[in-house]
């Protein structure tokens, strides 16, 4: 019954969409970028000094969106920590209770610095090449994740992560406020010298903001993983083990 109603609902919705916009969407590929995209491409170098136009948009032209985006991540790390009660000894901790064997255990330690290094590289070159604070931060967090997964005894201090997270967030807001102090009087304005196109030290505050974002994302994702797996060093004592089965059965009945 539920499936039939669902299907009818979706079918009518599909009909609605297709009948309204099909003619507009199924046309030939455009050969021209839309107005705002064109403005962004044109303004990237003079206004921001970055080579990557997406970065210029994300960090500078629409910097407030990015501040909001970082806030959403912060929120979800906060929410997961609040709701999980750090799942100490519960949650997914069973899955993380073994070392994953000799090869994984030591192999992870071997590649760990490399992963972190690549992450840092991607964060630092966000204004020049694809990447930036978000993917770079995620990469750094995967290093943390790998260590937690392959080392049963490994614990991470969420307190330390919270400090890093908070400092990085304050740095972002602080860099934004820098713009309010200068003569431009505009939040998130790019007040630092723009440097020369294509150099690491260019594009004013963009690399700095991306560094803050990268740090923040890495710390937040590490907090998320730590809270969900109960690997918090500051968490409570172990409780009776209970976890969600890896494959939740049912549903397909």
């Amino acid at each position: 019954m539920r499936k039939v109603i669902g299907f009818l609902l979706i079918a009518s919705f599909a009909f609605f969409i297709v009948s309204l916009v099909a003619r507009d969407l199924w046309v030939d590929d455009p050969s021209q970028v839309r107005t705002l995209g064109q403005a962004a491409i044109g303004q990237t170098i003079p206004q921001s000094g970055a080579a990557n136009t997406v970065t210029a948009i994300v960090v500078q032209f629409r910097g407030l969106d990015t501040l909001g985006e970082v806030t959403v991540l912060f929120l979800s790390a906060l929410g997961v920590a609040l709701l999980s009660g750090e799942f100490a000894g519960r949650g997914l901790s069973e899955l993380f209770a073994d070392d994953g064997g000799f090869i994984l255990h030591y192999g992870t330690r071997l590649v760990l610095p490399l992963i972190a290094l690549v992450g840092a590289y991607i964060v630092a070159h966000g204004h020049l090449s694809p990447g930036g604070g978000f993917p770079g931060g995620v990469l750094i967090a995967t290093a943390v994740f790998a260590v937690l997964m392959t080392n049963a005894q490994q614990r991470l201090s969420t307190r330390l992560m919270a400090v890093i997270e908070g400092l990085a967030g304050l740095a972002f807001v602080g860099l934004g406020t820098l713009g309010l102090l200068g003569d431009k009087f505009s939040f998130l304005a790019n007040v630092l010298p723009k440097g020369q196109l294509g150099y690491l030290f260019s594009a004013g505050i963009i690399p700095l903001i991306y560094a803050a974002v990268g740090t923040k994302v890495a710390a937040e994702l590490s907090t998320l993983v730590t809270s969900l797996t109960g690997s918090d060093r500051d968490g409570g004592e172990d409780h009776g083990a209970s976890s969600i089965p890896a494959d939740t059965q049912g549903g397909a009945r």
Binding site: R34, G37, V54, V58, G68, S76, S84
Partner: peptide, 24 residues
């Protein structure tokens, strides 16, 4: 067009945040 790309970057991160909270 770089603009939709930057929007998607934001949308992905927001979707990730929602999923994490939902699973918790």
């Amino acid at each position: 067009d770089p603009l939709p790309q930057s929007l998607v970057l934001t949308a992905i991160v927001i979707g990730f945040g929602v999923t994490a909270v939902a699973l918790t």
